[in-house]
Design a protein around this nucleic acid. Structure first.
Lengths: 200, 200
DNA sequence: CGTCTATTTGAATGTACTCAAAAGCGGTGG
DNA sequence: CCACCGCTTTTGAGTACATTCAAATAGACG
């Protein structure tokens, strides 16, 4: 049995349970015992559209992109995700239906995952855990709404500035062509835009 | 006390509680006693950005648009809503913070509303009611995700076709200029597009 | 019937796109 | 260590399509 050690966990993961949720050490170690580590090397997929998502995943290390493909081969990035984010397709998870999105590692990823059945057992043992996941889902839902509002009301240039404000290091971790997919413009256009704006 | 009579309710509202949720007649009449009617004439606002949403609203009759305004005065429609839909700003409702969206009647609306405090009391009396609202929230969350995916991956023309497929009667109920805001194109462009596509 | 607003049509403009090629960068193996 | 290869980013030029500005038509409502 591959146990997950405390020392290998991100500080945020420990905080989440011990501080924010006020778990006892025992509750935390029970919880931890249900999680498994999953490594996803750069460019590999954690989830492919069409598959059924049977687990929840926490990013302990690395980054991912969640994207859809259109029939013309174009890819459209809905979200990037970094350490301390949860990723997946919740609709696929809850309805056990094919996922509509892909989740691909942008850097080598170490995920902490828990299967649907394990999680359901676990929150019988520790009821307040259910609240935690409901909270996370609500936040994810609000984030999706914010993203929709952003996409609808801001120009590509404004969205680019927003992204840089939120993640100033983004270009160190995510290649330009993917940032272009996030903004829904061509890499050439992003390159020109970047040049134009950096001269200010 | 303005009681709401069964005969004034849309069939869907009755079905929702009596059939889908398997309420008893008593549970249903308790539930109904908490709801109030609210009339919103065409062009009036049910909710304005900046206000705090303190209730949930069910559209018994009419239609609304949920939209954001940008600093240049542009308006961007996130959703239209018709009979049997729930509208509002959930983030504002749950966090008691200013709403980021506007909800405006596109036709004279009759809403069935329940305040946050009433709903909280009600679902102590009838616990399964909480499940219902959680379900509705989850569906709303998935709908937001679908809309985001649509906005990102389809062209204005494809989104127009989608809209027509989902609501063939849309032009009978929603003026062209608002459909243009939904598609994020200018009314002139929609007019030309419509002409072009109708000739097929 | 007249006024106000919404929609349609026309023509000119601009911005992001496409196609194409050059430059930059990273990794591998000689 | 450097030379080569593949891939990413940048730059250039021409094009297409929605936008803007402007005006004409159509519809709604008193």
């Amino acid at each position: 049995m591959m146990e997950i050690y405390r020392s290998e966990l991100s500080q945020k993961f420990v905080e989440l349970f011990l501080e924010k949720m006020e778990f006892t050490e025992e509750e935390f170690s029970i919880t931890l015992s249900y999680f498994k580590r999953e490594y996803v090397p750069r460019k590999y997929f954690y989830l492919k559209a069409g598959q059924i998502s049977r687990q929840r995943a926490y990013i302990n290390k690395g980054s991912t992109r969640t994207f859809t493909s259109d029939e013309k081969g174009g890819e459209h990035i809905l979200f990037f995700a970094f350490e301390d984010w949860w990723v997946g397709d919740l609709e696929s998870y809850y309805n056990q239906q094919p996922a509509s999105v892909n989740v691909q590692a942008m850097e080598d990823c170490e995920l902490l995952v828990i299967s649907k059945t394990d999680l359901e057992n676990l929150w019988i043992q520790i009821p307040k855990l259910k609240k935690l996941f409901e909270q996370k889902e609500q936040r994810a839902s609000f984030a999706t709404m914010h993203r929709l509002q952003e996409v609808k009301s801001l120009s590509a240039e404004e969205r680019y500035q927003n992204l840089l404000n939120k993640f100033p290091q983004i270009f160190q971790r995510i290649p330009l062509q993917y940032i272009a997919m996030y903004l829904d413009i061509e890499p050439q256009s992003l390159s020109r835009m970047r040049k134009r704006l950096s001269g200010k």
